[in-house]
Amino acid sequence: MKSRAALLSTVLAFLLLAGCERRQDMLYTDGPGAGSIAWLSWFVFILFCVVTIVMWVLILGGILRRRGSFDTHEPFDVGGGQGWLAIGGFAIPVVILFVSFILSLRGMAEFPMHEDHEGHNGSSSVAPDIRVIGHQWWWEVQYIGGPVDQRFTTANEIHVPVGRPVNIALETADVLHSFWVPKLQGKVDMVPGYVNNLRLEAAQEGVYRGQCSQYCGAQHANMAVIVVAQQPKDYEAWRAHMVQPASQPSTPQEIQGQEVFLSAPCANCHAVRGTGAGGIVAPDLTHIASRQGLAANMFPNDDADLEAWVTHAQSLKPEVAMPNITQFDGVELRALVAYLRQLK
């Protein structure tokens, strides 16, 4: 009965796993980095199973191979078994550990070692294409590759071209965070006062989700990032658009919304390139309407959530840096949201 219950619960556990969403799956990967880690995981797991089976068979053999009887014990063979020790206790483990070590090194090659991205470490240093800075609780994304006029800052959403490795410098503005998009690449911590590097490559088009994976405070669980892998020409078009300053409001409501935005506290923390709003402590809103999520991808980016977020962020994401802004009347609030929603 007991074993049947165990079997049943195991089957149930697997059924539950089968129901899992695959958006953050580290075993079903879409990038070479995560792929090599997944391969290594399977290799180690299968090796573990084989070794375990061999060991249990040997233990079972030792138990069943009766020497002497219950009446007369045979004396211990203190001199025997050296061959077993030499081969089973030394040679085979050395081979297994050595092979695992080599394969682990191969996996580690997917992670560039720590390099000062200013290039002080010599010619091997790789200039990063993107700098991702962890904040409590959102991701600042700076595209810093290429000429100065092609650089821009966005947040919580990283676009990459399919099939091209992208070098990312990982930093933090406050506490420890960890950048992990499981389907694309392994996990790398963001350490205060330190730059870590990560090479990310997506093999297929798609939207890949990642989450902060180093506990960083109250809203750690709601600090998500998405990586949008696009065909190179779509990616270039996206980049060209992101470099542009914010679109100008056109309808009377949007124009009123811009006035509300610039006269309210919003601009103290947020930037909208092309306007007087230049705050840098909160996500850049220049193209906020083009992003898929709000509040580090905690909510979908739509009229309802944006209006709620502007006036009552503290109930939606308690302790977030964004305050409840309750100084607007209904008309002003709707105008403000209309303005933000046209920042495509």
Binding site: P300, D302, H312
Partner: peptide, 20 residues
Amino acid sequence: QYRCGACHEIPGIPGARGLV
């Protein structure tokens, strides 16, 4: 779909605890 719960508390709708 329309995310009414961002602003309203609505019994029976998951996550609908808005205070706006």
